[in-house]
Design a protein around this nucleic acid. Structure first.
Length: 436
RNA sequence: GUGGGUGUAGCUCAGCCUGGUUAGAGCACUGGGUUGUGGCCCCAGAGGUCGCCGGUUCAAGUCCGGUCACCCACCCCA
């Protein structure tokens, strides 16, 4: 096999794309309802943007970035996540001087050079949202609520768990960190090899280890939640109350470890048990220092990212039936004169938002009807020589297997109530989804 | 980077253990059964470097070695 896509990069073929469209349009709908506006930023930035945002010792920056040198010698990187680019745009265009609050979302491809596995790819899509300019715990609750409402809207929330925590800020986290180091350093012999390394690089991550020995040990380890400063603690309390107030169910998991350095205070994860090892479907947190660190004015912010492929996998599990593209009308013809007429009618119907399809190769009527059936056409218009002579067509209702002869000029009036592109996109299936 | 699994038709897979005619099935595709009528059924057709390279053998899809790819898992993450 010579001709092949790059490892970890996938094609999304037309038979899958309807599902993607449905998820994406639902996401847009929800995000806009919450006041978010789309922003599109380049898929490529100066490497420095990511290195400074994510932290130079994070796995992403250390070994997962697609980085290369431009012709002028500058180092460029394909974005491994979305926040850094949005923050860059926020600062570059001085959005803070236009409005104190900005709610932005993006949908697009991200790139990470990891070993692919289930739910994890080198080129993958994320839907992300960022709220700039508020440190109010209500904004935390709003963003988390929106994330959860999205999962409800596409009907996969039954598979999901929402967990939240706080990782403190630059006052309390360093203190906690040294407490942890102290705790684990005196118990080095019980730690696995990975955790010994973590102890050096990122001791908080030991809390997330899957090894039994380490798991046991972390039972007695100090919890971040007992070590928050007063302000962080109050903030976290308030976020919880606000979520409870509107009936969002969540669990507190003090072991939530985020992979990026920029997070402060509130962090949250939506996870599933259905996808094997890659259990995070959406995750995010507050990052109150990042804008300032990248050269903007001090600006609190909070955001999340959703893994599109993982959502799609869950959606396929929840709704295994195909998301079929549907045509309203198929036009079958017999003979070259009828073909011309068919082509003309097709154009008129399409101009009136009726999805119409027809064959090219002058195939048998039987073949044409087969194809009409395969395409799920609601109606088939049949034009043969007899019909041409009488200025009529046969209109066949494919579901009922009934047929009637109507005049050319009656085609559109007859069809416009039963099918249109609009009614097609709000099919029963689609409506059922929304009702969930 | 490490470990395990899998590579045979467009897709899902059987055949390999125990080497031996033209390598099979289901689905999908094309045509026909109805010279102008879909779904179900029946018939026919088309579709294969058995991942690749080498070795053993009279003979390799089958045994052996290597290699590549994909999948899953570790690590990490959405």
């Amino acid at each position: 096999m010579q001709i092949k896509s790059i490892r970890g990069f996938n094609d999304i073929l037309p038979d899958k794309i309807k599902r993607w469209h449905h998820i994406e349009s639902t996401a847009k709908e929800i995000l806009e309802l919450y006041g978010f506006s789309e922003i599109r930023t380049p898929v490529i930035e100066f490497t420095d943007i990511f290195a400074r945002s994510l932290g130079t010792t994070t796995d992403i920056v250390e070994k997962e970035m697609y980085t290369f040198t431009d012709r002028d010698g500058s180092s460029l990187t394909l974005r491994p996540e979305g926040t850094a680019g949005v923050v860059r745009a926020y600062i570059e265009h001085a959005l803070y001087s236009i409005s104190p609050i900005w709610k932005l979302y993006y949908m697009g491809m991200m790139f990470r050079h990891e070993r692919p596995q289930k739910g994890r790819y080198r080129g993958f899509y994320q839907i992300g949202a960022e709220l700039f300019g508020s440190k109010d715990p209500f904004s935390d609750a709003e963003v988390i609520t929106m994330l959860w409402r999205f999962f409800e809207a596409i009907g996969i929330s039954n598979y999901l768990t929402l967990e939240i925590s706080s990782i403190g800020d630059d006052r309390c986290r360093p203190l906690y960190r040294s407490k942890l180091i102290e705790f684990f350093s005196s118990r080095k012999d019980t730690l696995c090899r990975d955790c010994l390394r973590r102890l050096q690089q990122n001791p908080i991550r030991i809390l997330d280890c899957k090894q039994e020995g380490c798991k046991q040990l972390t039972q007695d380890a100090p919890s971040i939640l007992d070590n928050l400063c007063k302000e962080c603690s109050e903030h976290f309390e308030s976020v919880q109350k606000n979520l409870q107030n509107i009936g969002i169910n969540f669990a507190i998991n003090p072991r939530i470890v985020r992979g990026l350095d920029y997070y402060t205070r509130t962090v949250f994860e939506v996870t599933t048990k259905e996808l094997g090892a890659q259990n995070a479907v959406g995750a995010g947190g507050r990052y109150d220092k990042l804008v300032e660190e990248l050269g903007g004015p001090p600006t609190p912010a909070i955001g999340f990212a959703i893994g599109m492929e993982r959502v799609v996998l869950l959606h396929e599990k929840a709704f295994p039936e195909d998301f079929k593209k549907q045509v309203d009308v198929f036009i079958a013809y017999i003979g070259s004169e009828a073909k011309k007429k068919a082509f003309l009618i097709a154009d008129q119907l399409r101009r009136n938002s009726i999805a119409t399809e027809l064959d090219y190769e002058d195939r048998s009527l039987k073949s044409q009807l087969k194809r009409a059936d395969k395409l799920g056409a609601r109606f088939t218009i049949i034009i043969g020589e007899d019909e041409l002579k009488q200025d009529k067509v046969k209109l066949r209702n494919m579901k009922e297997s009934t047929e009637e002869e109507i005049k050319f000029e009656d085609i559109f009036p007859k069809l416009k109530n039963t099918c249109s592109h609009l009614s097609n996109t709000t099919s029963d299936f689609h409506r059922n989804q929304k009702a969930l």
